[in-house]
Design a binder for these strands. Sequence first.
DNA 1: ACTTGTATTGACTAAATGGTCAAACCAAAA
DNA 2: TTTTGGTTTGACCATTTAGTCAATACAAGT
Lengths: 220, 220
Amino acid sequence: MLAKRDKMDLQTDKIILESARKVFQRSGYGGARMQEIADKAGISKASLHYYYRSKDKLFQTVFRDDIQLFLVPLVDILRDPSLTLKERMRTFVGSYIRTLLDNPGLPLFIMQELSSNPERLVSLVEDTVPGTNPLLAVFIRQIENGIEVGECNQVDPEQFILSMISMCVFPFVGRPLIQLLLRKDEQEYRDFLAEREKEIMEYLLRILFSNHRPSDVPPN
Amino acid sequence: MLAKRDKMDLQTDKIILESARKVFQRSGYGGARMQEIADKAGISKASLHYYYRSKDKLFQTVFRDDIQLFLVPLVDILRDPSLTLKERMRTFVGSYIRTLLDNPGLPLFIMQELSSNPERLVSLVEDTVPGTNPLLAVFIRQIENGIEVGECNQVDPEQFILSMISMCVFPFVGRPLIQLLLRKDEQEYRDFLAEREKEIMEYLLRILFSNHRPSDVPPN
DNA sequence: ACTTGTATTGACTAAATGGTCAAACCAAAA
DNA sequence: TTTTGGTTTGACCATTTAGTCAATACAAGT
């Protein structure tokens, strides 16, 4: 009775989504078991099906939420027209690493499912991110402009952006392996990732601005 | 009869491993189906069990091979004592991107399985890579040395190495998503990745050597 | 107290899945 | 030709899994 009330207050369907998210993230769609999700949510498997008719429906809901969580900050920052080049980079790196510190399992899950079922990509991504077309256009334009006026070094804008994303995301995707290579425990690795924001920015500035020196990080 | 001979010549167990690799890479351990592996290898499920007694045994074999393929070049280059700093970086990036171009699905598979079953990590990785201890020691020492003598910029060696690995590996892990963002088809993306080797080296040199200018790429 | 609409579950089903086995197959040795 | 050894498979089994359903519990309105 009390238990039931508690669940009601916490919204059973939200609890289910949280449990499902964990199980799907760890095992993928094929490896996930409805029973395990039900157990983790503290309900029966029948109740689980009462809320979400099928495994597929449940997965769709979880995946849609996750891909949105993963893409929205990226997209918003990448094409915000009011940001300068340096601001855009700094905002992206900071915001992204913070998002991922809160959801460490997110990228690997999305990559795995997208890779094993690429068809879902088109419909869901274009569903989540309206107007995919000019996603990187603003960013690329800014870099090209910087090169033209001689402020920036010659870089391929696409390669540069991919490098920025790589440096932010990969430490979360490859976490177990890197953690072993660097011989760090959970807490040490978290600290290492938090430190990483500053370090990445430093790298990006050095790549892009040949006259950049460590001292001119704080201003701007 | 002919079919059977063909299979014999090509070593049935090798065919099985190739099929299993593909299925495991796409679906993970939990999502993979023995029937699908058998079908892809052109044999019956019973034959599949004749060669590899259980799904677990088959997976172990595939995974062991893959993690070796993934780690050996990394390890060998990272601690080869005869390489200079720049040589080490150049060799690593070149060799690694080429390895991954031949096995694009490798990193994501390893990351996924390592993440859902981290215990396997310790035993298998330390099994595959003997003496994990001084893996990054040589590399880190070289960077620290370069900083001391004023040749290199101030960087955290661990963060720098992680960035190098990230830029090489992530484009393969995040392939479907990035391919969509950059609007490239298969061939365009392959070309993009092949180009990437030069671009990454340029970035790494700029990060590490403040006096580096685009012109001094070719010599050493 | 009775009704009503929602939430919950134990028991069940049908299909899928990993795994087994005896029988058949086949090339090469005897 | 017969035997022998490894190879292959159809049929089968036990277990697991997603999904169903009738029965129950329960809070709220009447």
